[in-house]
Simulated assay, not measured.
Amino acid sequence: MELNWTEEFRAYAVRIALTSGLTCKLVASDLGVTDAQIRMLTLYVLWNAEEVPS
């Protein structure tokens, strides 16, 4: 399954996952995706980022 998320959605999802204090499961539920997708997206962004998004 290919994910056609916009860059804005990806940035928003990662920002919420990292700064909200909510679990990945709650963030995912709010965004209509799976918690595994949020975890993988966050790890991917952190692994490839030169600095942590704020």
Rank of each mutant, 00 (worst) to 15 (best):
E8T: 14
S20F: 01
V52P: 10
A49E: 04
M40G: 10
L3D: 11
A13F: 01
V33G: 01
V33A: 00
D35K: 10
Q37D: 06
S20A: 03
A36F: 08
G32E: 03
L43K: 15
M1F: 08
E2H: 07
W47D: 15
W5Q: 03
E7T: 11
Y44I: 05
G21M: 09
I38R: 00
L26M: 10
S20Y: 04
E51H: 11
V27M: 08
P53V: 04
V27Y: 01
T34F: 02
D30G: 14
W47Q: 14
I16P: 02
A13G: 02
A28N: 00
K25I: 08
W47L: 15
V45W: 04
S20N: 09
K25Y: 10
S54R: 14
P53T: 05
W47G: 09
L3F: 12
E2D: 07
A13K: 00
M40P: 03
V52I: 14
A11H: 12
N48C: 02
T42P: 06
S20K: 01
W5N: 05
T23I: 06
L3C: 11
A28V: 03
L43E: 15
L31Q: 00
E2K: 14
A36R: 12
L31R: 02
R39N: 08
A11V: 06
Y44D: 15
V14R: 06
S20C: 03
L26R: 14
R39D: 09
T6S: 13
A11G: 08
L22H: 09
R39K: 08
A13M: 05
L26P: 02
L46G: 11
K25A: 15
G32Y: 01
W5M: 04
A49S: 11
F9R: 11
G32P: 01
I38W: 01
R10M: 13
V45I: 12
L43M: 09
E51F: 10
V33N: 04
L46A: 09
S54F: 11
M1H: 04
T23M: 12
D30L: 14
F9P: 08
F9N: 03
E8G: 08
Y12R: 15
A11I: 07
T34E: 06
M40Q: 15
R10E: 12
E8Y: 11
S54I: 12
